[in-house]
Write a protein that binds this DNA or RNA. Structure first.
Lengths: 112, 112
DNA sequence: TCCATATTTCTAGTTATATCGAAATATTGA
DNA sequence: TCAATATTTCGATATAACTAGAAATATGGA
């Protein structure tokens, strides 16, 4: 996953309202929910909610598709898993990269 | 984990600069890095970097402690793991909550 | 004590985000 | 076609965030 994509994803989750919407959809599972139902569950005004759903969709956290006159929103579980994994993916890769300006010389590395 | 804490965490990761800083620290592993070294690796101006590190520390993503005249920054791996887990934690809990306004009656639920 | 180093705080300009009412669009059923 | 429903777009305001130079603070060594 590209860093830019991860930033957009985390940014989308970094809002109280949006995380509430996302959690509502995650809880709802793969069947998803229409906008109106999300509105009922979160108490977010329609126009604000539309804005946030667009944001979440742009970040690939939510998929939307029209079904009759409703729009069904589903959490993108695959992408969410990838984001969860991204956080610690490169853990400790540079552990021994001693380009630290004040890196101790090797003989001094004995004591941790 | 409380939602508020999760929002702060994701919000902290939702910035190109901050995610770069965090990734640098995640890669560096539990020993952490002094501010100056992070600055070298990310090319972020000192004052901007200090601001972001404060933000990351406030969100419990990074721990800082003074060591001589340097400040060592370490990724808080425990908290990062908790955040990663949070994303999908309540997956599908409401799968069958049929308070959907247009929920089909039970006899119609046969097909999926 | 005095200077060099490491990092932060101050300050300010610019840009981005959150919010939501009202009006607009689109779809279905009567 | 008309009215009802579902959702979005528009527009405007308020608030917050990002950025970074310059000045301030703190620490260690000569």
């Amino acid at each position: 996953m590209e860093t830019t994509v991860a930033v957009e994803g985390f940014s989308a989750m970094g809002s109280e309202s949006r995380l509430a919407v996302l959690q509502t959809l995650v809880k709802a599972g793969p069947k998803g929910l229409p906008v109106g139902e999300i509105q009922k569950r979160t108490n977010i005004p329609a126009s604000t909610l539309a804005h946030h759903l667009k944001f979440l969709a742009a970040a690939h956290l939510v998929e939307q598709d029209k079904q009759g006159r409703s729009i069904i929103n589903r959490a993108d579980f695959t992408h969410l898993e990838a984001l969860a994994e991204f956080i610690l993916r490169e853990c400790c890769a540079d552990q021994d990269t001693s380009s630290q300006s004040n890196a101790p010389s090797e003989k001094e590395l004995v004591h941790d």
